[in-house]
């Protein structure tokens, strides 16, 4: 399926976050960094295999994308993914404009939109009623923002993010299934592993 598309949120298939996280991670062959946001987002990232280039945000909502932006600015030759839930990114919508303005070629934001604050009891978020995060991202200047229509389209969008200049944003509607694991809650260890994971030559040398 072509990545040039314009699916609406309503047309996007409801997929599974654990499955999509694994599909994303399986494509990472060049020590790409992945910053997982609070909520079930980082749990599924953890469950997908604890790559040294993964960072798990335990406490603050909406900061995965800004942290990933900092990583992208510091290591412009390493591709960086931010994974964030809809509830979390709703707290930090200005980050879309910041990323669009800084325009790092090596950053891709992935939004898992389950229409809920799943981890706190699945209360509805604003995306369950009126808010379309792709529309907001585009209006903030992130032109390469797409709803993933289905699993194949999601994979094609990830491939495009890996091979083309960003910034990109991929939004996927996901179900309310439990995540596949639980992140270890040791912030010091998470930071050290991540810093070691980013200290390899790859971030400096990839073109």
């Amino acid at each position: 399926m072509s990545t040039i598309s314009n699916f609406s949120r309503d047309e996007a298939r409801i997929m599974n976050r654990s499955d999509l996280t694994r599909r994303l991670v399986a494509k990472l062959k060049s020590e790409e960094a992945v910053v997982g946001g609070i909520g079930h987002t980082n749990w599924d990232l953890w469950a997908s295999g604890q790559r040294p280039q993964n960072f798990y945000m335990l406490g603050s909502m909406g900061l995965a994308a800004p942290i990933a932006l900092g990583v992208a600015v510091a290591q412009p030759h390493r591709k960086v993914f931010a994974l964030e839930g809809d509830g979390s990114i709703l707290m930090q919508l200005g980050a879309f404009g910041t990323i669009a303005t800084v325009a790092p070629k090596n950053l891709c934001v992935v939004i898992w939109d389950n229409g809920a604050y799943h981890i706190t009891g699945a209360q509805q978020t604003l995306t369950a009623t009126t808010v379309d995060l792709v529309a907001i991202a585009r209006a903030s200047g992130l032109k390469a923002s797409e709803w993933a229509a289905d699993e194949d389209h999601f994979e094609a969008l990830v491939d495009a993010a890996l091979s083309e200049d960003g910034p990109q944003l991929i939004a996927a509607r996901v179900d309310h299934h439990k995540p596949a694991g639980t992140t270890d809650r040791d912030p010091g260890k998470i930071r050290l592993n991540f810093m070691r994971g980013l200290s390899g030559a790859d971030g400096k040398e990839r073109t």
Partner: peptide, 26 residues
């Protein structure tokens, strides 16, 4: 200097935190 003016101070803090972990001082 690379200078970034985001929308909120939380973002400003998180950008510098991410950059630090990737080896850059902010």
């Amino acid at each position: 200097f690379t200078v970034i003016c985001p929308a909120r101070e939380e973002e400003a803090v998180a950008i510098v935190a991410g950059a630090y972990m990737a080896g850059r001082r902010g």
